[in-house]
């Protein structure tokens, strides 16, 4: 497996960078780190290409990979990821924002 540079990549996915609404403290960095690490470790995506506006298709994820990505994030974060929330046209920022919202909602229950 290629070693990622988590510090840089996580920084790029802070809520400010993503333009996401401010959720509960702590959720956003955790979600950003999970998205980054699944993409870099499991799918061997180059950390440099994981930009907020990058679509999942542009990261070379095909439909089987998208389904596997959703399950990996679900395993990692304990929240459900719908098929429509991780499509070829979904951006990294959109996926991350969805997960942050979902996790915040789940955590507030």
């Amino acid at each position: 497996m290629s070693s990622s540079s988590p510090t840089t990549a996580t920084t790029a996915l802070t809520p400010v960078a993503l333009g996401a609404p401010a959720p509960r403290a702590g959720a956003a960095p955790r979600v950003g780190a999970a998205v980054t690490s699944v993409l870099t470790e499991k799918f061997e995506v180059s950390p440099d290409s994981i930009r907020p506006d990058a679509t999942l298709e542009s990261l070379d994820l095909d439909s089987l990979a998208l389904a596997e990505l959703a399950l990996a994030l679900q395993d990692r974060l304990g929240v459900r990821v719908e098929e429509s929330e991780a499509t070829k046209r979904t951006t990294v920022a959109e996926l991350t924002a969805t997960l942050i919202t979902r996790q915040t909602t789940a955590g507030a229950r």
């Binding site: 497996m1 499991k42 799918f43 061997e44 070379d60 089987l64 990979a65």
Partner: peptide
Amino acid sequence: TPEQARIGGGKSWR
């Protein structure tokens, strides 16, 4: 080692 186990090309997961 990671080098010995390397499939590469983002294919190992499948």
